[in-house]
Simulated scan of single mutants.
Amino acid sequence: MGEGKFFRDKAPDSEKITINLGFVDLGRIDLLVQEGFYSNRSDFIRAAIRKQLEVHGGTVEKTIERHTMELGLRDYGRAELEQLRAAGEILHVRVVGLARIGADVSPDLARATIGSITVLGALQAPADIKNALADRIS
């Protein structure tokens, strides 16, 4: 009895989505299902999505972005941003308080590693850094 409740309360491991397909594409999928390549339309669509995720896997890994919200004082210096650039990561600065970008950070390094800046409080950075990131500061 307790075991049955466990399964009923289990969180789903997938989410249902709805897509619209043209009649020709739908017919092609149905043909592949009829010929036994896939068990049903959903099986085909899941396989197609997995294949595309595999094709773009390297891109996904290289563009992992760090999204953080920090409270208080946060300093960003050259060493940290160079590590992000080497890892292929983009930083999204989210600070409530004071964010400071060090004078040792070049405008090129800032543009290569900082995708956006949102500061509720104050942003302190050299003028050339603020100019380089003007389109990314909100």
Rank of each mutant, 00 (worst) to 15 (best):
D13M: 08
S14E: 04
S14D: 09
K16V: 07
T18C: 12
T18M: 15
I19F: 02
N20S: 13
L21I: 15
G22V: 03
V24I: 08
V24D: 13
R28A: 15
I29Y: 06
I29M: 08
L31H: 13
L32S: 13
L32T: 10
L32H: 08
E35D: 14
G36E: 10
Y38E: 10
Y38P: 03
Y38A: 02
S39V: 15
N40W: 08
R41E: 01
S42C: 04
S42D: 09
F44D: 11
I45T: 02
A47D: 14
A47K: 12
I49D: 02
R50E: 15
K51M: 15
Q52R: 14
Q52E: 15
L53Q: 07
E54I: 06
E54A: 08
E54R: 11
V55H: 03
V55N: 07
H56G: 09
H56C: 09
H56V: 13
H56K: 05
G57T: 02
G58R: 08
T59S: 03
V60E: 02
E61P: 03
E61N: 08
K62S: 09
T63P: 01
I64T: 14
E65C: 05
E65Q: 07
R66H: 06
H67T: 06
T68V: 00
T68P: 00
T68S: 03
G72Y: 00
R74C: 00
D75E: 12
D75F: 02
Y76T: 00
Y76H: 01
Y76S: 02
G77P: 08
A79M: 09
A79S: 14
E80L: 05
E80T: 05
L81F: 03
L81N: 04
E82Q: 15
Q83W: 14
